[in-house]
Design a protein around this nucleic acid. Structure first.
Lengths: 233, 233
DNA sequence: TCCTCTCTTGAGCGAACGATCAACAAGGGC
DNA sequence: GCCCTTGTTGATCGTTCGCTCAAGAGAGGA
């Protein structure tokens, strides 16, 4: 009587083969959570997530003690795990001029973050006041932009950061170009404007337009600061 | 017995003088809602909003039939009302070179949108799939960038848009610089990185760096497209 | 002084939220 | 075949959501 009653299920239940191993199920949950929270934001509902996975909602809490723990796992999966150590090597590669290092880094980096889940969860976390975005961009600043600016100083025969610390407006030079490239993805994946353009090509063109003048601008910025410091002293 | 019992109130209740006129109360609610939803996102709670205003929650529904209606009102207040018709005049001002028009527009525009509520509600709306961001940026594209690109064509003695329609990559030239300027505010007001810089000054410096090469790049882009079109025909 | 208009509130509805727990059922070892 | 381990679920708890409704209370005219 109780067993296998042919009851009509109210919601589309099981796109997944049941009784997975723990590892398989956990992976399925993580991937589904990334896709789901990217779509609806980090305050999406665990019930709806479970429904999309075709599993019961309590099963989520078997694998993650709390919703916050699941979100923490998403951070590791989407941001920390996709951080490419090669980026840090590229921007320090002494065999390349600094501008070429920057170009190669940005093209690689943007290809990584120009991703529905990456950008939307990043922004959603920022709005919710989580420190992921500031921590992540702090990493970009420290591990990418600092060594790059240091070598740009050397390449332009400017004082080393030891003699004259890197200033905020020098970082802004890089963040400016960086931000223009990020904005291409934001317009499409967060604001929902398709535009129908090849975003990789657009960013390559933007780099072509912005990079040639960068070293000269950098020299001007550093020189201006030296004058200010000299007149101030 | 019932009247004015000296009961301790559980939450800080009334920073506002009670019994306002309808117009005053409505204004207070709108301003409070802008600040509140900017802080916590558009799925903030009406109860918490009321608590911050020092009023009872049902009072919100006296002035706005639904939460969606209140949000719609926020759109009008923050985006439509702050749209400056002078921007459209600036970018068509025949007495100024196009680059100067663009600079003046961006400096004015960015000063308007570099605002906690403006940026955060804009992004929050984008994440929630509302069409405000795409509609608004469509307005920027049509009312600002189109006339600007049209006159840039003329200033560079290039074919008019009637003979050769404005192409996506021409718009991207302007959106690229535009996005770099917007990103300055996003980093601070959405991602929570203060940086301690004068964002107006940073943007002015970015314009100084980006504008000089813009016309030449524009000519190159248009020329490239003409070749493609010619070889394709 | 009292009445009336209207701004304002306390109490509460149905639904949905994150999270819990005991019971069910699919495998693999014996 | 049996049983024990473990992946999985239905039912449900306490809370909070947007929203409603009838009653309270201040201000102005008579």
């Amino acid at each position: 009587m109780v067993s296998t009653h042919p009851l009509v299920v109210p919601s589309p239940p099981a796109p997944t083969g049941r009784r997975l191993t723990a590892a398989e199920r956990e992976r399925q949950i993580v991937e589904g959570a990334i896709a789901y929270f990217a779509e609806v934001g980090l305050d999406g509902q665990t019930r709806e997530l479970a429904r999309r996975l075709g599993i019961a909602q309590p099963l989520l809490f078997r694998y993650f003690p709390t919703k916050a723990a699941l979100i923490e796992r998403i951070y590791e999966e989407v941001y920390l795990k996709r951080w490419d150590a090669g980026w840090e090597a590229t921007v320090r590669d002494p065999s390349l001029p600094c501008l070429e290092r920057f170009r190669r880094f940005e093209i690689d980096y943007q290809r990584t973050i120009d991703n529905y889940a990456w950008l939307r969860i990043f922004v959603s976390a920022g709005l919710k006041g989580f420190d992921l975005p500031s921590r992540y961009l702090g990493m970009v600043r420290a591990r990418i932009f600092t060594p790059l600016l240091t070598d740009m100083r050397a390449e332009s025969r400017l004082p080393s950061p030891e003699d004259q610390p890197l200033a905020a407006d020098e970082y802004e030079l890089l963040f400016g170009i960086h931000g223009a490239l990020v904005y291409v993805g934001l317009r499409s994946l967060v604001y929902g404007i398709d535009g129908g353009v090849d975003r990789d090509a657009v960013r390559a063109a933007m780099l072509d337009a912005a990079l040639p003048g960068l070293l000269a601008t950098h020299r001007r910025v550093v020189a201006a600061r030296r004058e200010t410091a000299a007149s101030g002293a």
